[in-house]
Design a protein around this nucleic acid. Sequence first.
DNA 1: CACCCTATGGGAAACGTTACCCATCAGCTT
DNA 2: AAGCTGATGGGTAACGTTTCCCATAGGGTG
Lengths: 345, 345
Amino acid sequence: MEPPAAPRRVTIVDVARHANVSTTAVSKVLRNAYGASPEMRAKVRRAIDELGYRPLAAARGLRGQTYTIGVMLPDIRNPFFPEILDGVTGCLEGTDYQVLLGPGGNGEKEEVRVTDAMIDRGMDGLVLVAPVSPRDRLEHVASAVPTVVVGRHGHSPVYDTVADDDRAGAALVVRHLAELGHRRIAHIEHHETDPTRATEMPNAQRADGYRRAMRDLGLDGEIDVVSTSYTQQGGYEGAKQLLARPHRPTAVFAGADIVAMGVLEAVAEAGLSVPGDLSVAGYDNTTFAALGQISLTSVDQAGQEIGRNAARLLLERIADRGRRSVQVRLSPTLVARRTTDRPPA
Amino acid sequence: MEPPAAPRRVTIVDVARHANVSTTAVSKVLRNAYGASPEMRAKVRRAIDELGYRPLAAARGLRGQTYTIGVMLPDIRNPFFPEILDGVTGCLEGTDYQVLLGPGGNGEKEEVRVTDAMIDRGMDGLVLVAPVSPRDRLEHVASAVPTVVVGRHGHSPVYDTVADDDRAGAALVVRHLAELGHRRIAHIEHHETDPTRATEMPNAQRADGYRRAMRDLGLDGEIDVVSTSYTQQGGYEGAKQLLARPHRPTAVFAGADIVAMGVLEAVAEAGLSVPGDLSVAGYDNTTFAALGQISLTSVDQAGQEIGRNAARLLLERIADRGRRSVQVRLSPTLVARRTTDRPPA
DNA sequence: CACCCTATGGGAAACGTTACCCATCAGCTT
DNA sequence: AAGCTGATGGGTAACGTTTCCCATAGGGTG
């Protein structure tokens, strides 16, 4: 009894033989290409079914398409990204394309690894979600394979972009708080060193949107930004700093929900109540913002919409690589919950 | 000015020419194969660097390996899965393998689609995380490509498995609650219809573990199981039912953290307090269980450990397809937090 | 009736890599 | 000196698919 030595795969040649036609004919049927009569198509389709034939992507890739779209997600933990993914897969449903994800993970090095891997695997198109790599790296990738960049603002002639208007989102929060009567509204931002990213990344746009909105409301003097990171720890530390102010803010706009979680923790630790003593708002409307126990006011990016648009643009670009690049910008909405209320009297 | 028509890729032939050797030699160097002198290796490596050559996975796949490992995740939203993924990638770091994720998503149909896609793409090995497909489908997949199944208990001669001991995990919770003084401990389970899955799936094992642990503690009479689903909604509804009992339980063991979230919501709505009136425990130790605002007692599965083991087994099986199948079972631990305490007096 | 279309089908050469095998050569052993 | 060995390098045929082209046949046109 020998090891069952995986039976040889059914190939296009087997199908051709079984249907009494040429391999060329089978190929034409597979790709819905020109030059096959209806009878031919029927005959071949039957043979394909009878033999359970499936085309081998590797072999196809050697000649042209692999019918694979790669999506790079920076942090699979961020509950916002699955939304985007749903949008992408939803839009690709019904096409022959299959989506595969690359775990972008941590920083530029990993992004290079993943994008290279996707190119090496002959993927037909790439969706890069919130990449941190420098612009020229993105353009390098885009010159090798049709690419759409999601959640990053700067635009390039070689790739399309889809993003929410983070500036507008920040303004939504500030105005919401101001309408409740707040004036001392602070912001916790993600510290950014790289100069390009300082313009292109969502965190930078949010901080900028915060500043503008404050100015527009005549609250220039109250602008108060703490620079930490988009992590729970960053929120915790940022809040500590803000609570230590001689004249502490009555509201905190955290640049991300996870940051807001850290803020809530620090506030509880200080023996203060939310929203009694301090209003708190986040950004991203993640799953836990909606949890009853938390009920965090947040900004909802239309994740699915973003994904759908990205997929659509990608298909267009695959069809016409030379076409001009497109930038899509979507509008976020505010979801007011129980962590924001009127300031203490 | 014409469209920049992506420049032809550097191939092994270019490298060979540039280094004045044969393509065979280059191939040997690439694969660290036998039959290349140190000088040869050095020369070829230099040429590779100078030309920026990268092997095309599609072409490799046509001959043998693609150096790609596919990981199917059922629900990218479940914050437990990234842990597993980290374990897998961590173990594969340093090897030539690249991990790509398939969005398993919703049910058998999608699982078939994703696994087929991975096979078609010539992946060298698959990790299936908590698949819902029937056993023979899994065996079919495993007979086409080396496979490790994660988080599912039944074992098969053709694939390896890695899972936590869910029965033991459930027992941990029950004993913890019993030690605190609880007797009326209820359980909310995920309703399972399929007979195979009723044995193999983690949810079934947890329910079973709950029953056994109750019996072991002499609490046979107090066994109380509500059958809904592993969703927040399921937890909410389950809790509603339990709270409506004439003699309501003093503790609820929810089969998953997300279920516990629903329970907490229902409890708050009923005007009761946790853990004052009711203790609540979850399972999975997800990110939000740890959030200060929630602080949910839960069971921690060694996610990274699971992933590492899966990757290790997969590499072994790729190296020796005929080898006997292995089952790894890991022990979960209890993380007691603030949602469990002594029962009301 | 000669000619030229168009529609349909197939032959065969790629695509980039690996694996099998053979050739060569230097250094030993008889 | 002939024969053997092991180490090194290369030639070449796959792998499964697509794509470029050519062949054929039938039908319409001049």
